[in-house]
Design a protein around this nucleic acid. Sequence first.
DNA 1: AACTATACGGAGGGTACCTCCACTTTGTCA
DNA 2: TGACAAAGTGGAGGTACCCTCCGTATAGTT
Lengths: 195, 195
Amino acid sequence: MSTTTPQIPSVARPKRADALRNYERLLITARDAFAEGGSATSLEEIARRAGVGIGTLYRHFPNRQALLEAVYVEEVESLCRSADDLAELPPWEALSRWLHRFVAYMATKQALAAELLAYVDRDADLFQGCRRAFYGAGEPLFVRAQEAGVVRSDTGFDEVIQMVAGITKMPSASPQQIERVLDMALDGLRYGASA
Amino acid sequence: MSTTTPQIPSVARPKRADALRNYERLLITARDAFAEGGSATSLEEIARRAGVGIGTLYRHFPNRQALLEAVYVEEVESLCRSADDLAELPPWEALSRWLHRFVAYMATKQALAAELLAYVDRDADLFQGCRRAFYGAGEPLFVRAQEAGVVRSDTGFDEVIQMVAGITKMPSASPQQIERVLDMALDGLRYGASA
DNA sequence: AACTATACGGAGGGTACCTCCACTTTGTCA
DNA sequence: TGACAAAGTGGAGGTACCCTCCGTATAGTT
């Protein structure tokens, strides 16, 4: 299943060793900084924290939008790749865990996505690609669970994603509440399954 | 019906004549500028266009958020007041026109609302108040139409607003498309009415 | 007309995004 | 291995934006 991991226009890494090092430090630092500061962190701050000059940051990411995009894509890819780890688990277990990760991911990335939407519009390649990636990674887990008879047969992956996406948008709910609601929703997904 | 127009924490106008003049010019200029530039316009630009100094702008609106809020509230109030103009019209005509205005309003104010949401959270007084105002203004039109038998009786104003709000969020649709979809949805609202 | 509370305007402080270019490092090829 | 070109680095500084401060001007009152 590892070959099914779909590739988004995946960001082209730089070639030289030092450049690659700096690139990845910047990406990680930016991810963490945005997670804390809700995407309000300045690029200067990120460069400083990553221990590189501001010029270096701009060599790798020509503007703020580019950095936001790169962080976003990186996270989506990581979430999709993480579906592979779950291939060994029983079908239900795998699907359920992945959806939990999906929700946790959305919780932290909402501010980032909101700012990105101010730059690019909703159906830009970026988001299209990410949606395709989500489907490519999650749908096999779903189908497997359905074929194993642990998920009701009268629904589709689309509906599940929409339901789960809706849950992530619950206004001002604590992470615990969201987890509980997700579990309830997932119980509904099992209800009436053949096994 | 003009007394039913609900008041949002309505912005307190300044007292002195010159101050009031400047205040309103700023508000109008800001509204137009945000409508064009999608809320990206700078406050300096707005002050310049309104023909006042930047200090004057800041005297009336202590920061960017305050100006955005004032424009937003002003527009909501205006939309709600406009329900009064429609009181003379036949019930269906009145409801239908007001919902069209609602959609047109949403189309232009989406960017503004998006930036506001970055400052205040979704269930702040601001938005609560605006929702109350919407209901106060629109529900009587709806009830009147329903009582006149030109709107089906098996639905409520909540549902209609949600449906219409959904239409306003149609991604990258032209104003004409939105109008057409709204008309179709409104036909659905009439379907099976008694008259 | 004099007076005072209110309002005006814009210079300037602080910070953010981004550009430019002199200098350094990496990797390659004779 | 050492020299050299290509690639990469860092930070001063340009421009724009938000906002503060305060000396000046004006509306409304007595």
